[in-house]
Amino acid sequence: MPPSRADLNDSVNFTGIDRVIHEPARLAILAVLRAFESVDFTFLLNQTELSRGNLSSHLSKLEAASYVAITKEFVEKVPRTLVRLTDAGRAAIASYRSEMDRILASL
């Protein structure tokens, strides 16, 4: 019989998980951003396969957590939204990875 949620919570401490990153769509966004200095909205849209609204909403949450920086510019009169991972975002991914490793090792 699989262990109940209560049993798991007794043996593993989940409180260290960063909920901002733990959401799959935001994790995918951060994973893409980690390899790039900066990308625009269209590139993120193609890579994450999220809808525009979803992507905007997740980016807003990541920006509020200071994990990404968003800047707007015009290139030949066309607006472009550039997104880049901040140092805090990079550190958060590293800490999330080690936290997940710790939890998975203890399961």
């Binding site: 625009d40 590139f43 193609n46």
Partner: peptide, 16 residues
């Protein structure tokens, strides 16, 4: 890149 690539798949600058 500006004329043919970015309008199709978006702009990206690979980290060093």
């Amino acid at each position: 890149k500006r004329k043919y690539v970015y309008p199709r798949i978006g702009y990206s600058k690979v980290a060093r």
